[in-house]
Structure formats: structure tokens, C-alpha cells
Design a protein around this nucleic acid. Structure first.
Length: 245
DNA sequence: AAAACCGACAACCGCAGCCAA
DNA sequence: TTTGGCTGCGGTTGTCGGTTT
């Protein structure tokens, strides 16, 4: 059937928005609010396509937007959500108030992706780039044994959270505990051996996760985070019977 | 000092999905 | 049920400012 273009391409301005155009759009949105994006350019006196107006408003002019780079807390949340939702940026953005899907997508592609690669983690699968199941890489630990978990994580827990030393410990390329956390085998073993209550599974699978492994991952890294941008590790602290600093 | 390069982010494009007629 | 219009999403490109050569 063929679709009609969203606007007449001829005579429609493209490229960066000027301050004057921004002012017109903001004024229009303030006085009229949103009704129909197709009609906005005409009513607001803009030589733009409706789509372009919507994008400019949602990604840049909206008054409830946060400005500036994502903080460490937000970054960790994005990584966690991306591990479970994939490139569904709008779904991820919905969990970060004041952030747009475009902003998160850009931040992912320019910052987080590189960080994960540097950490030895595949940004697509969130698995170690060097699989820990090869004989030379596999940590010599049984992940179902809390005492081994304790051994493998003791270093991180012994560091004051939020310090550069603590953070860099998580950014090292060959840390066995990092590989352990991200390995499918570990999450599988954990989910098989952990007997949570119904409400527990419900609480930690709230973001639409389907597998037990994903739910366990959510619990491991997503809970008990503090307000300084540190990863939670509430699950680890529960396993180990210890409290984080 | 100038050209080349690079990174960050704004903006565009095409498609999918939803909804009303 | 089909069709057409609109919005929203995700991938990609363009632009600009900073850095390096």
C-alpha cells in the first residue's frame, strides 16, 4: 500500500535547531501541551517535520530532563537492565527518571560499551569475552559453595566501597570473581541451589525477567546499593552472612 | 598554525506496532 | 478484517568541538 510520509519533505528544514526554533517549540508546548505532533510544526510556526519536533522536545527541551553525564549509579542500572532487556532503550530509559532513550543509547555506545570491553565483558551478551570454562581460565572454585564465594569476593569486600581502589578492582580484566558473577554456570548453579519464597522471586523478577538465572542476577547486583553510586551486592552479603561497609 | 583525526551527542531515517474508521 | 494514519523505537549518520600530529 505504501505509506504517506509523515510530512511534506519539500521545504522542511533539517539539521541543528536554532535558539529561535527552540523558543517557538517550548512556547507552543507550554501554552498548548501535546496534542498531535503532525500538527505541531504548523501551529507553532516551525518549518520542521512533526517527527523532528517530537524528537527535539523529548530529547532536549522537555523541562523534566536531567542534564549531564550519567552517574555511576545510573550507569550500573543501565548495564543491569541492558543485560536483561537488550537494546530496548526506551524500556531502559523508563527506569531512569529524567533520562531519554537517545541519551542512554548514546552513552552506551560511547562510554559503557568500551568500559565493558575493557573489563573483558561482551557488551552484547554480557558474558566474559574469555569464557571461564576453558581449563586455563576457569576459576578453581565451586560456585555453589559459600566459602569459595567468600574467597573469591573477599578482596572486593575488604576494600572501602566507592574508593578508586574498590572501583578499579571491578574494572580489572582478569578478576576471577568478575568472571564468576557473569558466568552462566554460576547463575545457573545459584538458581538451582537457592530456594527463595514466592514473594522473593516476584520481587526480584519485577522487570520482566523470565529465567531463574536472570532473577538471581538481579538479586546479586541490584539490591542494597547505596546512594553513592556503588553496586549493591546485597545478595552476596546475604550469602556470606556479612554486612557491607 | 593548520590539517587530520577522534569522540560525543544531536538529529534523521525507516520500520513496527497500535488504533480508529 | 482491512486499511490508513500516527507515534514511538532503534539503528545510523551528521555535526561540532577538542586533541593530536
Amino acid at each position: 500500500m505504501g505509506r504517506q510520509p509523515c510530512c511534506d519533505k519539500l521545504g522542511v528544514k533539517k539539521g541543528p535547531w536554532t535558539a529561535e526554533e527552540d523558543r517557538k517549540l517550548v512556547n507552543f508546548m507550554r501554552t498548548h501541551g501535546y496534542n498531535c505532533w503532525r500538527a505541531v510544526p504548523k501551529l507553532a510556526g516551525l518549518g520542521r517535520c512533526g517527527k523532528s519536533c517530537r524528537l527535539r522536545w523529548t530529547n532536549y527541551l522537555r523541562p523534566d530532563l536531567k542534564r549531564g553525564l550519567l552517574n555511576h549509579d545510573e550507569e550500573q542500572l543501565v548495564i543491569d537492565l541492558h543485560a536483561r532487556l537488550g537494546n530496548r532503550w526506551s524500556k531502559i530509559a523508563a527506569r531512569l527518571p529524567g533520562r531519554t532513550d537517545n541519551e542512554i543509547k548514546n552513552h552506551w555506545n560511547t562510554h559503557i560499551k568500551k568500559k565493558l570491553i575493557k573489563m573483558g565483558i561482551d557488551p552484547v551478551t554480557h558474558e566474559p569475552l574469555q569464557k571461564p570454562d576453558t581449563p586455563q581460565n576457569k576459576p578453581n572454585l565451586d560456585p555453589t559453595q559459600p566459602e569459595n564465594l567468600s574467597k573469591s569476593c573477599a578482596h572486593e569486600f575488604s576494600l572501602p566501597t566507592g574508593t578508586d581502589e574498590w572501583r578499579s578492582s571491578w574494572e580489572s580484566d582478569d578478576d576471577p570473581s568478575i568472571n564468576l558473577i557473569w558466568s552462566e554456570a554460576f547463575l545457573h548453579d545459584l538458581s538451582e541451589n537457592f530456594h527463595g519464597t514466592d514473594s522473593w522471586w516476584k520481587e526480584y523478577s519485577e522487570i520482566g525477567t523470565s529465567s531463574k538465572e536472570e532473577t538471581c542476577f538481579s538479586w546479586l547486583v541490584g539490591d542494597a546499593g547505596d546512594n553513592d553510586g556503588n553496586l549493591g551486592f546485597g545478595g552476596f552479603s546475604e550469602i556470606l552472612g556479612m554486612n557491607l561497609p
